[in-house]
Design a protein around this nucleic acid. Sequence first.
DNA 1: CCCTTTGCGCAACCTTTAGTTGCACCATCC
DNA 2: GGATGGTGCAACTAAAGGTTGCGCAAAGGG
Lengths: 113, 113
Amino acid sequence: MTSPLAIDDDLWSALGDPTRRRMLDLLLAAGAGTATSLSGSLPVTRQAVAKHLVVLERSGLVRVEVSGRERRYRVDDDQLGRAVAQLSAVGSAWDARLNRIKRIAEAIEGEKS
Amino acid sequence: MTSPLAIDDDLWSALGDPTRRRMLDLLLAAGAGTATSLSGSLPVTRQAVAKHLVVLERSGLVRVEVSGRERRYRVDDDQLGRAVAQLSAVGSAWDARLNRIKRIAEAIEGEKS
DNA sequence: CCCTTTGCGCAACCTTTAGTTGCACCATCC
DNA sequence: GGATGGTGCAACTAAAGGTTGCGCAAAGGG
């Protein structure tokens, strides 16, 4: 195992920002959205949202669909699925280590008696 | 459900940095470490590591133990456990939405026939 | 058809964060 | 006591997240 943590940093860092995470939530809930519509539900300006959309698009988590003068974004299911898989991979790697430590601690505890 | 995504942003953002994630890995693997020892296994300077350790300590993910002239850090199991729980909470919330979308799509697909 | 909306993009600027280098300090060990 | 090695502090740079202000083009309503 070459460290289960040799992770796609780009994907992770796209998810690292709270505003971007909330944008993904909003997009999942509404199906799609534009920079303007998203900024209505977020505590930041449209321009900030637009910059985040660029980041999300570069990381493949959303795709754009131009319709007239609107740029409508929606989540890329496959890519978000991959992201979720990585989150849970890191989570379970850490969990495994924590459990191993715990078992060792308990074993030592047992020996003492 | 008041959005499973009303998440502890501090904890998440502490985990958002790739260097900090690798530091946690190193600390878990070695049991403990100092700014100097960690910087030996990372592509950044000791000072950068020291700053990250401050962030990790503020978020409760590591605790320090002063021993002579060394400041030895180790992971706080409970807090890392909470962090892992949050990762998996967000992951499964998204997963649930993706699956719901998929089911709806399949249902529509079914209707067409 | 013109004029007003409205959704976007671009540019300048500010602040915070991750990183660097350089230096001074103090505990340790010979 | 003096060299050594682990820390802390300060100044500086670069990139990221955010803001404001402006200009433009596509829709829509008289």
